[in-house]
C-alpha cells in the first residue's frame, strides 16, 4: 500500500481523535506500515469541529496530513459538508445514516451508511461509544488491519472501567458491516 489517507471527523467530544489514535497505534503494533496521525480541534473541550487524520504507507511518510482522503468518516452534517470536497471520487465514505448529504454530486464511489448513533444508544446503551462503533465498522472495511490488534489497543487506551463497554461498541460496529 503506497499511501492511504484516512480522515475521522465530527464534533469535539465525540471521540474522533481517540479513534484515530487507536487506529494508528494498532497499525504501529502490526508493524507492516508506517503511520502518521495528526489532529485539529478547537480550544473548547466539547463542541466545535474536531478531526483526526491517519496516513498509512509502506514508504516513509513525508507530508503527515491528508491531501486528498481515501477514506472519510463523518459523524456530523457539518463535518461531512466541510470534508466531502477533499475526498477522492474513488474513495470511501462512512457516515451515520442520519447525517444529511448536501452535495450529492461530490459523493464517492463507495458510500457506507450505518446507524452509528442508534447502535451506540440502543444496543450498547451509551451514545458516547459512537466512536468505537464507527471504528469497528472501519476495521471491518479495511483490509490492512486486524480486528484483534485494534481490540488490544482499545483495552490499553480507554479508561479501565470502560474497556468492556468500548469493546462491545467496537464489536457491534464490526458485526454490522460483516453481517
Amino acid at each position: 500500500m503506497d499511501r492511504y489517507e484516512i480522515r475521522l471527523s465530527g464534533a469535539g467530544g465525540q471521540g474522533a481523535i481517540l479513534a484515530g489514535i487507536i487506529l494508528a497505534d494498532a497499525i504501529t503494533k502490526a508493524d507492516k506500515f508506517n503511520v502518521a496521525q495528526t489532529q485539529s480541534y478547537g480550544p473548547e473541550a466539547r463542541g466545535g469541529a474536531s478531526k483526526a487524520e491517519v496516513i498509512v504507507s509502506e514508504k516513509v511518510i513525508a507530508y503527515p496530513k491528508v491531501t486528498k482522503a481515501d477514506f472519510l468518516l463523518a459523524l456530523t452534517d457539518s463535518a461531512l459538508k466541510k470534508y466531502l470536497p477533499d475526498l477522492k471520487k474513488t474513495g470511501s465514505l462512512l457516515i451515520d445514516e442520519e447525517v444529511f448529504i448536501q452535495d450529492k454530486d461530490l459523493l464517492p464511489k463507495e458510500v457506507i451508511k450505518i446507524p452509528i448513533f442508534k447502535i451506540a444508544r440502543d444496543q450498547v446503551g451509551k451514545i458516547i461509544t459512537a466512536n468505537m462503533v464507527a471504528l469497528g465498522a472501519m476495521t471491518a472495511l479495511f483490509d490492512f488491519i486486524d480486528k484483534g490488534e485494534i481490540e488490544k489497543v482499545i483495552a490499553k487506551r480507554v479508561p479501565t472501567d470502560t474497556v468492556e463497554l468500548n469493546l462491545e461498541a467496537f464489536s457491534a460496529g464490526y458485526r454490522f458491516i460483516v453481517e
Binding site: I21, A24, D25, I27, T28, D31, N34, V35, A36, Q37, T38, Q39, I61, P64, K65
Partner: peptide
Amino acid sequence: EVVGHMREN
C-alpha cells in the same frame, strides 16, 4: 504544533 501533537511509529 504539528510536530508536538503528531504521532508516528
